[in-house]
């Protein structure tokens, strides 16, 4: 093991601090702005001179934000659930089975992941309008699933490859049907991978702005990232900076909770002890 000298430690600490500050300053700035009163919002001080929760009160007083929040949560959760279930089955097949067209399937999903989404917005807009999907939940859920699936398949098949093949054979010998072997042996072991994937997919859906702004028109399906664009102040001349910041803070909370909640389940080395080595 390399010896960590004091100089090395100081250097690393400085680098760490720089990275953390660089990443956190905008977040803290947003947090600070959301707690400033209307009068002091432009004063430029990092710590609010006058603490106020008025911005939060404001965003929850209008229906728009609440509806957008409900849309965001609903659409993201449904898209995540479907993408993870489909992704799990596809990834399992890719990791375990040899079937004709496997390479083509993997290549195709890679193609989907690399496709520039912006080039699809206009065709999708036309298609969804003629199919009456425009400005509906399924209208966002479907493209989210499409673009989240390659991500889910790649992450999950990596996890499935880690699970020793012999465990499944052992389950079969112990009297399990293929479905029982999957449910009682493979699925519990793949759980960390499934949760990791779920987090990634959820964040992807939650953060999406491009589809949300293009494929929605009303509060019926508009998600928070899109709804923020439509925030207005009390009058046309008032800048809604405070409310936007408050909304940004509010929509960050579910992501933080989501990660904190599932982080415990992402235990590295869960399969250790299954086989020698």
């Amino acid at each position: 093991m390399a010896v960590i000298t004091t100089g090395k430690r100081v250097r690393w600490t400085i680098i760490d601090v720089i990275v953390v500050v660089y990443a956190l300053v905008p977040v803290l700035w947003t947090l600070s702005l959301s707690f400033k009163s209307k009068a002091t919002i432009g004063d430029g001080s990092f710590i609010p001179q006058e603490w106020s929760v008025q911005s939060y009160v404001d965003i929850f007083q209008t229906n728009d934000f609440l509806l957008a929040l409900v849309n965001s949560i609903g659409i993201s959760l449904i898209a995540t659930a479907i993408a993870v279930v489909l992704g799990t089955m596809a990834a399992y097949a890719i990791a375990r089975l040899d079937f004709p067209g496997k390479t083509a399937l993997v290549g195709f999903s890679l193609l989907v992941a690399m496709f520039p989404q912006v080039s699809l917005v206009s065709p999708l807009f036309s298609i969804e309008r003629s199919l009456s999907l425009f400005d509906t939940w399924p209208g966002l859920i479907l493209p989210y699933i499409t673009f989240a699936l390659p991500l889910a398949i790649y992450t999950l098949s990596a996890f499935f490859r880690e699970i020793p093949w012999e465990l499944e054979k052992a389950a079969k010998m112990d009297g399990a049907t293929p479905a029982q072997a999957f449910r009682r042996v493979i699925a519990p072991l793949a759980a960390p991978g499934v949760f990791t994937t779920a987090i990634l997919v959820f964040i992807f859906c939650w953060n999406d702005f491009l589809f949300a702004i293009s494929l929605t028109a009303t509060t019926r399906s508009r998600t928070v990232p899109a709804a923020l664009q439509f925030f207005t102040g009390a009058s046309q001349f008032e800048d809604p900076t405070g409310q936007i910041c408050a909304a940004a803070v509010v929509i960050t909370i579910p992501i933080v909770l989501f990660v904190l909640f599932f982080q415990r389940r992402i235990v590295a080395g869960l399969t250790s002890g299954a086989v020698k080595g």
């Binding site: 020793p164 465990l167 052992a170 079969k172 010998m173 519990p188 072991l189 869960l270 299954a274 086989v275």
Partner: peptide, 20 residues
């Protein structure tokens, strides 16, 4: 017959214990 219908038990080289 599927392995489960043969009523035989197997010990694997890697032991294949269920880690969870």
């Amino acid at each position: 017959k599927a392995p489960k219908d043969r009523d035989i038990a197997m010990v694997f080289q890697s032991y294949a214990l269920y880690p969870h």
